[in-house]
């Protein structure tokens, strides 16, 4: 029983990380109507950036954060303005195919630079310390990850509803054509949105890099998690990503509790069940 509660608690906490994987994907889809198939690979790219600055250059973690997050933001802006803005239109195919191409380029580029070896960051003692509450033990690192996730999502919420940029982002989400007539430079706004998305990816990437080991090919499974979280939590809902993340994390924890080999599968299956039972509810009737 204690073991079950422990794994459920772990599932809730990893849900925070999953929500971070998903928040950027959701933001980008909401504004640009583009599902970025390279999303997972961009997260892994962030993890490798962190790995390179901390483990290879030997810089302290706080400095790595200050380097990686702006670089991710810049990468997002450049990618959007330089490439992805040229694919936006009525046809869903071009953005999908182009981001799929980016995914393949990133994976193989990372393989070329970092090889296929498993990597992991070492954050030191915090990774093994845990908080004992009665019979339940929760790792301090997992708690930290969850706290960062909640803070990030709160920040995103604040940005969206309390700032001028957020108002412009939401207006552009509603109706990009009219937003332009109001004077919004939508090309630039799309770039900013992708930059924000990739900064969130960067936060997820740094946390992920110490959570578990990763390789250049870890991207697609991050993408699938992010996607499932977005669909479960409801498209366009900021706090929904946290709910979706926790749902998926708990599903995986339960599956893994029954049989370690079922962990990932259980997450996918819960996703499919939710999709089958609440198709219109989750998609908000868009067809």
């Amino acid at each position: 029983m204690t073991e079950l509660i422990n794994s459920l608690a772990q599932g809730v906490l990893i849900g925070g990380l999953y929500a971070l994987f998903a928040a950027g994907l959701s933001l980008v889809f909401g504004i640009m109507r583009v599902v970025n198939l390279a999303h997972g690979d961009l997260i892994v790219t962030g993890s490798f950036m962190t790995f390179a600055t901390v483990s290879m250059l030997g810089l302290p973690l706080w400095l790595a954060v200050l380097i990686v997050l702006p670089m991710m933001g810049l990468l997002g802006y450049v990618l959007q303005r330089g490439l992805l803005n040229h694919t936006i239109g009525t046809d869903v195919l071009p953005p999908l195919l182009v981001t799929f191409g980016i995914s393949i380029i990133l994976q193989n580029g990372l393989l070329q630079i970092f090889t296929a070896d498993n990597r992991k960051l070492d954050f030191g003692a915090i990774e093994v310390m845990s908080l004992q509450m009665g019979p339940v033990a929760m790792g301090w690192y997992a708690i930290l990850v969850f706290a960062v996730a909640v803070a990030t999502i709160y920040g995103l919420q604040f940005l969206s509803y309390r700032t001028r940029l957020g108002r412009v982002l939401r207006a552009t989400t509603d109706d990009p054509e009219v937003a332009r007539v109001m004077g919004v430079r939508t090309d630039h706004v799309f770039g900013i949105a992708m930059a924000i998305a990739l900064v969130i990816c960067g936060i997820a990437a740094i946390l992920f890099a110490a959570w578990t080991s990763f390789t250049p090919l870890s991207g697609p499974s991050r993408l699938l998690i992010a996607f499932e979280v977005v669909v479960i939590g409801g498209i366009g809902s900021i706090w929904g990503t946290l709910a979706g993340g926790i749902t998926l994390g708990v599903a995986q924890a339960l599956g893994g509790y029954l049989d370690p080999a079922w962990q990932t599968l259980a997450g996918h299956i819960v996703f499919v069940i939710i999709l089958a039972l609440r198709p219109a509810g989750i998609l908000g009737g868009r067809r």
């Binding site: 108002r167 939401r170 109706d175 937003a179 109001m182």
Partner: peptide, 20 residues
């Protein structure tokens, strides 16, 4: 009309200021 449906009346009006 094409208001921004998820923005409030004030926010819709403020979008006009984006003209600079």
């Amino acid at each position: 009309r094409r208001l921004f449906p998820s923005l409030t009346v004030d926010e819709n009006l403020l979008m006009g200021t984006e003209s600079g």
